[in-house]
Simulated assay, not measured.
Amino acid sequence: MAISKQAIVQASIKILNRDGIDNLTMRTIANELQIKAASLYWHVRGKSELYSEIAEYLCSQYQMPKREVDEKSFLEDMYRSYRTMLLSTRDAVPVFEDSIPNTPRRMELITATIDALSVMGIPDKNLITIGNLLNNYVLSFVADEVRFKNTSPEAFADFAETLGPFDRRMFANIDYDGQFLYGLRVLFAGLESPEAQK
Results as ranks from 00 to 15, higher is better:
79 Y>C: 03
57 Y>P: 01
133 L>V: 14
60 S>I: 05
3 I>Q: 06
90 R>A: 07
39 S>H: 12
180 F>L: 06
70 D>A: 11
113 T>M: 08
54 I>G: 00
48 S>F: 09
139 L>N: 07
57 Y>C: 01
73 S>K: 12
14 K>P: 01
15 I>C: 00
182 Y>S: 13
22 D>E: 15
137 Y>D: 02
50 L>P: 00
70 D>G: 09
35 I>H: 06
156 F>M: 14
63 Q>N: 15
26 M>G: 13
155 A>D: 14
80 R>G: 05
26 M>V: 06
183 G>T: 05
39 S>T: 15
138 V>K: 04
178 G>E: 10
119 V>I: 15
113 T>F: 02
110 I>V: 10
197 Q>K: 15
189 A>P: 04
116 A>K: 03
69 V>L: 09
65 P>L: 06
167 D>V: 08
89 T>V: 13
146 V>H: 02
163 L>Q: 13
55 A>C: 04
7 A>N: 06
130 I>H: 01
157 A>R: 12
165 P>S: 10
70 D>P: 10
121 G>S: 08
60 S>P: 02
84 T>P: 08
176 Y>H: 09
99 S>Q: 07
188 F>S: 03
17 N>Y: 05
152 S>N: 09
115 D>A: 07
180 F>K: 02
47 K>E: 06
171 F>S: 10
126 N>P: 10
198 K>P: 03
11 A>E: 00
77 D>K: 10
57 Y>W: 10
130 I>A: 03
21 I>P: 02
82 Y>C: 04
67 R>P: 05
11 A>L: 03
167 D>F: 13
51 Y>P: 01
37 A>G: 12
39 S>A: 14
98 D>F: 14
134 L>S: 04
60 S>K: 12
69 V>Y: 11
163 L>F: 07
19 D>I: 00
149 K>A: 11
92 A>L: 05
139 L>S: 04
184 L>T: 00
121 G>R: 05
193 S>F: 07
143 A>W: 05
79 Y>F: 13
142 V>D: 01
104 P>E: 04
192 E>I: 06
60 S>Q: 15
58 L>S: 08
136 N>T: 13
103 T>H: 11
12 S>C: 08
103 T>F: 09
77 D>G: 10
185 R>W: 09
163 L>K: 09
32 E>I: 02
182 Y>A: 13
109 L>W: 11
47 K>R: 10
114 I>L: 13
24 L>I: 04
50 L>T: 01
33 L>S: 01
3 I>F: 09
148 F>V: 13
27 R>W: 09
105 R>W: 07
172 A>Q: 12
40 L>V: 03
173 N>A: 12
